[in-house]
Simulated scan of single mutants.
Amino acid sequence: MANRRSFDDETPYARRGRLTEHERARLAALREDAYEPEIPGDRYSTWDTGERGPRPYPDWLVTELAAVDTELGVLKAGKEADVHLLRRGLPDGSRACLLAAKRYRSNEHRQFHRDASYLEGRRMRRSRETRAMANRTSFGRNLIAEQWAVAEFGYLCRLWTVGLPVPYPVQRNGTELLLEFLGEEDGTAAPRLEQLRPDADELESLWFQARRALELLAGEGLAHGDLSPYNVLVHRGRLVLIDLPQVVDLFANPAGPEFLARDAANLARWFTARGLDVDVPSLTSELSERAGLR
């Protein structure tokens, strides 16, 4: 009698029919891993995703989707957000630009010092989300981070459009803002107003620009909300306002006039300490009138 093959010797049963969804996803992931191309940077350009800044786009901005983004280091570490230096350029090196990537950190928002008074008058989300933000749950902290990113990007777009001296807002993706980098080609950031020791002529020029910025803000019915020499950059003689997630609507926020007066006083104090004669009460009165508060 011929020897029969044992059950263990049988060729494994070949399954027929359609792949399950799980198996299809597994094979797709294997294909992606096998053919993942190497890129000369940390990621491909995210220009095709998220929310973009106002048109017309500046000539210096690299908008080609073939571009890659390369991290160059941290420019500033803060309580609510970190600012990184990013190079966006084409792989062949023909075009490139430097960007400031501001990334809000949700896990740090338990003590976000700008939550309460600055949010007065702003449209809030659904009650469930409002409770989550108030209780600082993990979900709520993520919402807070995104809320500030959305607010800052929106105000930057608005202020850029009306001619305020602010960085050009390139795009927003979630809690990351990509902004015009104010500095030199080697990555050296523009100094803050607080760091400068200007001569008399430079001081006059900077105050003229600062006052004009305050007037334009007031004309829009807004106050910076946290203005100080630390939130002002000076790039090649040009004064630029930064850090604007807490911009205050002077009419919707009951404390709007107080924020306006505080911004004017904070900025004027730096100039008066360096010998410039600034009449703060008169300045505040003029700004209030320009805003339509009187």
Rank of each mutant, 00 (worst) to 15 (best):
R4I: 05
R5W: 15
S6P: 00
E10G: 08
E10C: 14
Y13D: 06
R15M: 04
R26W: 12
D33T: 12
A34D: 11
E38F: 05
G41L: 05
Y44G: 02
S45Q: 02
S45I: 03
S45R: 01
P56A: 14
P56H: 13
D59P: 00
W60A: 01
T63Y: 00
A66G: 06
A66E: 02
A67K: 00
V68A: 00
E71R: 06
V74A: 14
A77V: 03
V83A: 11
V83C: 14
H84T: 08
L85S: 07
R95A: 07
A96F: 03
L99Y: 01
Y104Q: 02
E108L: 15
H113W: 04
D115E: 03
S117T: 12
Y118F: 11
L119N: 02
E120F: 15
R128N: 14
M133H: 02
R136Y: 03
R136Q: 04
G140T: 01
N142G: 09
N142E: 13
A145N: 01
E146N: 06
V150R: 12
A151E: 03
A151M: 13
E152D: 04
Y155V: 07
Y155L: 08
L159A: 14
L159W: 14
W160D: 10
G163H: 08
V166Y: 09
V166P: 09
P167Q: 07
Q171K: 05
T175K: 13
E176D: 11
E176M: 04
G183V: 09
Q195F: 05
A200P: 00
E204Q: 15
S205R: 14
W207R: 03
G219M: 10
A223F: 10
Y230W: 09
L233K: 04
G237A: 07
R238F: 00
R238M: 15
L239C: 06
L241N: 05
L244M: 03
P245T: 11
V248D: 04
V248Y: 13
V248C: 08
L250I: 09
P254W: 13
A255L: 09
F259K: 02
F259T: 04
A265P: 00
A265T: 13
N266F: 08
R269L: 12
F271D: 03
T272Y: 07
L276M: 11
L276Y: 01
S282K: 11
L283Q: 05
L287H: 09
L287Y: 08
S288K: 11
L293E: 06
